[in-house]
Design a binder for these strands. Structure first.
Lengths: 221, 221, 221, 221
DNA sequence: TATGAATGAGTCTTCATTCAT
DNA sequence: CATGAATGAAGACTCATTCAT
């Protein structure tokens, strides 16, 4: 987290003002998740934090800066935590397992992210898209894609899989299931799946899809 | 297209006014895909269709009715086309293959759908969510889930897979990749994948994930 | 007056809407003269015309367009009327006499102009400056300057006079006295000079200043 | 500079705080000249001086008091310097020559004055008008007017000239040319005239205009 | 002396909606 | 069918001002 990124922040004293700022930021992310960025009035954020709309401008100047702060202080750190351990020399299956696991874990503490990601990052015209794009750890994703390609070369991974596209499949599938857990329960009249269960489902779907031969298949041979 | 679904329609003359209505509907869906429903002003839709904002109210009364019309006339028919052929007695793999194929085909003629689906259907607070929810062919999705469960019982499908959740994985993965094709190309500095290629990728990922034994594994035996 | 310059104008029917537009324009110019452009709220203009602030935006879109309209429809025509008769071959004294006369006459029907001219055109940072600058009839002012230079060459005009600067002296002196007539009366506890008297004063000041030898002086000799 | 005029002033230590106050005052006058008083936010003044908006309130209480200070500390002293030497018994031509000269000299050290004078003093609704009005050395201006009237009585000055109005012509012409030097250069694509040159131009215009017979005419006699 | 926090009022602008024609 | 006029409500943003420290 870059100190220079904060618009206002009394250096030595993380006291009252920081609290208000954090509360506003939290209110913002919750409302963004619920209604989308464009449909979230500045005043609504302030109201939810029990402050005046003018305070939003005091801490974040304007809408643009608020979005900058959200990405820089809330989304970028998560991306870093998720992708940092990715390194060459690790098997792609293990990499993906770890990524999904860390993603699910990170989102449990920031449950507003999947919804916002789908709406504002993945969508054309999404208001966070370019901001996040600049923050994607492309070097890390390339490590994963390379590992997948090498796996394909060794015949361990299905040749029909696009090794770059699958990075998106992985992130998107996880985000999508986490974001739609409630909707899913509502649509199919069943219990809302827990984040851990979603992680297992996604991992199973992805990993078995990567293996031309499943474990049971090999065993049954 | 159900006649009763149209708000206004001069009975004898389906000519010019229908054209205008269709143009407005087309303009609406394009803008919804680009900016989201909440961020699309009524007047902007009219402007894009070269008409006056008042015409929007003439044809669609108000915002709510417009959304009703979009779902009923544009989304519901696609859902029907995709799910209608699903029937019991067909292997789940084949069902899913067909669904993805028809979905990709249908979206090629309505490229605004994936973006809107992700934003306005899957998301909490999405403005089309409840309208679409009512139109989901639950009987058909249940047929697929049942087929999957039976596959698991027969040991043909991985037991870690959630047979209900996977319906969502399938639709969501397809929609997500179609919606983010441009972003994907931008993020990873590569060509935008074609809808057909996306269909193949998704099918491969899903189907191989469902099979404990991959094709090559069996062949290699 | 260019028809294309109007933002909105029903072509055939100069009825009610034109009235409202004209009223708003009149209210705007009056308030601009009284308080300056920057200090005149959009809403105040509407209020003075007995309309809602939203109507301002209906007719003029935003502040910028309003200023465009004021310059194009109200100031540019006056400039044209004042400078159009200026032509080469006429004595500079006669040219200046005519210009001041037409300026005074024009301003009698648009008494808001001098104040606005001083504040928003002459001043650095004036909000109409560049808009008016583009509309100055430079060809005409050059005709006057040339005539003055020729007069200097013939020894009829004082060589200390800057023949270009004097164009400004003339316009500025007239505008200034017309704009400050009320202030003048207030400051010196005397009657407010009438526009005609101001015209005579300015013309006398300017013309005699151009002549090294005044007519009366020579005559009285 | 009158001590009583300052709102706050720690008696013993005229050090740091005076500097800050002077800086704020300088920032204020610069911004007033550039954008006008009404369009200059309190906070902008502070920002330009590298201080906080709250400091403005500390030194000047509120907007009204700031304007009082500007007039009292910055404009009134200039007026005094310009008009003080005016005394009866001096020829009006000489008086005017001296006034213009001292005005030009004074403004060279306070280049923000002409613009502000035109905008905020001469204009109806100008925010400094009444404050300056109270400070005008009316006794001195009356001395000049009287001298002019006597000149007219002696036939040395054109009878068409208004001896009171000409006081305004003189000040206004000087201020106007100084304020619009940059605009003039921009409008007529020529060099910006220097203050000294403007002084000569104005003096020539005024003095020759006051003489029914020019110097050369008299000399030639 | 100096500042950051906080706010209420006000301004510009957009927009869905209504209505008379 | 179609449109221009009109509006009230709401949103983004600014700003002068106050206050505790």
């Amino acid at each position: 987290m870059n100190a220079s990124s904060k618009l206002k922040r009394s250096p030595g004293r993380p006291a009252a003002d920081t609290d208000a700022r954090e509360q506003l930021l939290a209110a913002a992310t919750e409302l963004f998740a619920a209604h989308g960025v464009a449909a979230t009035p500045f005043a609504a954020i302030a109201r939810r934090a029990g402050l005046t709309p003018a305070m939003m401008h005091y801490y974040f100047r304007d809408r643009d800066h608020l979005l900058d702060c959200v990405v820089e202080e809330k989304i970028a750190p998560l991306l870093a935590r998720v992708w940092d351990p990715v390194d060459s020399g690790i098997a792609p299956q293990e990499l993906m397992h770890g990524i999904v696991e860390r993603l699910v874990a990170g989102i449990e503490r920031a449950p507003w992210i999947p919804s916002t990601w789908m709406r504002e990052v993945l969508n054309e015209g999404g208001l966070l898209r370019n901001r996040v794009l600049r923050r994607l750890p492309l070097d890390k994703t390339r490590i994963l894609s390379s590992a997948l390609k090498q796996g394909q070369a060794r015949g361990e991974i299905d040749a029909d899989i696009d090794p770059v596209l699958v990075v998106f499949s992985m992130l998107g599938l996880t985000m999508m299931h986490l974001a739609t857990a409630a909707f899913f329960a509502q649509a199919f009249h069943c219990r809302q799946p827990r984040p851990q269960a979603i992680g297992r489902h996604v991992t199973a779907l992805l990993l078995n899809g990567l293996k031309p031969a499943g474990k049971r298949a090999r065993k049954s041979k």
